[in-house]
Computed example of a mutant assay.
Amino acid sequence: MIRIKAGVPRRAGRPRTDTRAPGHRGLPSWLRGTSRPRRRRLRRALALGLPTAWGAVAVTYKLACPLAQQNGLGARAVSSAVFFAVGTGLICYVRHGLLRELRKARQVADAAQSVLLRPLPPRVDGLNLAAAQLSADHGATIGGDLYDVVATEHGVRVVMGDARGHGLTAIATAAAVLGSFREAAHDEAELDGVLRRLERALARHLRERARAEHPSAGPEPENPVAEEFVTVLLLDIDRDGEVRALNCGHPWPYLLSGTRVEPLANAEPHPPLGLFPLPHDLPPVRCGHLMPGETLVLHTDGAEDARDARGRFFSLHTALSEAVRDNLVAGPRVVLGSIFTALLRHTGGTPADDIALLVLSNDRQGRRPSGARGSDTCGSAAGARPATTNPQPTTHL
């Protein structure tokens, strides 16, 4: 299931489509004037009343109808039809109730997932945004992938990450990391301080899971905590477009500048969080400037690890190059739609791993910083230009 996480918020002052009182929404007219305890009792009575009525009809027919006492073929056929109708009615009633409860459960799940991976605004401090996620689990809208964009007094800070595996365990890990980022992005003046806060939050989460999954409290856990890790990419974008990055085992994003598609950096990333402690010295990688009109495409490894029926990997670089060649780079949402269309076509609509994409473009108006090149990429903290601009897809942790 693909979920687009950016959209235009509802205009202030727009009239509500449902003008009923909050406590009466979705109620029939004959229940709106009653109190909640009375409505609850009435609903319970109705829930029991219909099956009781169907059963009474069947018993009455069997005991009181003369036709039910006959042994002829016609009488037996009529009796069978009556009991078949009663049984079908009961099954349909139970099915309707189960579907109603399932819809409510899905609404609650969607609300909880939207709180965790909240929809991004279409614009943050002069940057246009669009993001989407495809979960490998049927019925889920999120998985172990995480991302967020926050405007702070220190600049616009971006996180993209991928927790090991997918499912509820990966979602809980992603929630711990995202919650820490949303606080640390505002509190920490330097990017390395944000990353260290994320490392401490992940360590606390894993300790709590270890206590809950200890063998003394039950069977051996299927996913040992010692094997858990999260890849994290942090970006800091200043007002003048300068980009600084810290990368822990995550794929580098792609920079779209004119007709060129190249990785933002080719520096060796640090190990993923959770496997090894962070080094004492964490200088951010300086990645030049994101100039007006340029676009960054952040992604998780599920995009480049997606395979078709013949086992061939999906080439995200090629898909982006085709989008640039076809003049599709008109906005983040257009880029996002183009990539996901190519991904689903490549995988036949059934990817085996969670996939998340975050596209942001610089729409700020201003002069070009002196000495800055909009297409600059970096290979180290010194800001060296990468040796190649057409890398082959690789498999990441």
Rank of each mutant, 00 (worst) to 15 (best):
residue 1 M to I: 10
residue 4 I to K: 01
residue 7 G to L: 12
residue 9 P to K: 09
residue 11 R to K: 06
residue 17 T to I: 02
residue 30 W to T: 06
residue 33 G to F: 07
residue 34 T to K: 04
residue 36 R to L: 15
residue 38 R to Q: 15
residue 48 L to D: 01
residue 63 L to V: 14
residue 68 A to W: 05
residue 74 G to D: 07
residue 83 F to H: 15
residue 93 Y to G: 01
residue 96 H to T: 03
residue 103 R to K: 13
residue 115 V to M: 02
residue 117 L to C: 09
residue 126 G to C: 04
residue 126 G to M: 02
residue 130 A to S: 14
residue 135 S to C: 11
residue 137 D to Y: 02
residue 137 D to M: 11
residue 146 L to E: 02
residue 154 H to E: 07
residue 154 H to R: 13
residue 157 R to A: 05
residue 160 M to V: 15
residue 161 G to N: 06
residue 162 D to L: 09
residue 173 T to R: 05
residue 175 A to F: 10
residue 184 A to S: 02
residue 192 D to E: 15
residue 197 R to P: 08
residue 199 E to I: 05
residue 200 R to I: 11
residue 206 L to T: 14
residue 208 E to Q: 10
residue 208 E to P: 00
residue 217 A to S: 01
residue 219 P to H: 08
residue 234 L to W: 07
residue 247 N to M: 07
residue 247 N to K: 05
residue 252 W to R: 12
residue 253 P to T: 03
residue 254 Y to R: 11
residue 258 G to V: 02
residue 262 E to L: 14
residue 262 E to R: 15
residue 265 A to K: 04
residue 270 H to P: 00
residue 273 L to G: 00
residue 274 G to M: 09
residue 289 H to F: 12
residue 296 L to T: 00
residue 308 D to W: 08
residue 312 R to C: 02
residue 316 L to W: 05
residue 321 S to G: 06
residue 324 V to N: 02
residue 326 D to N: 08
residue 349 G to C: 04
residue 352 A to T: 14
residue 365 Q to E: 06
residue 367 R to T: 01
residue 369 P to N: 09
residue 377 T to R: 14
residue 389 T to G: 13
residue 391 P to V: 11
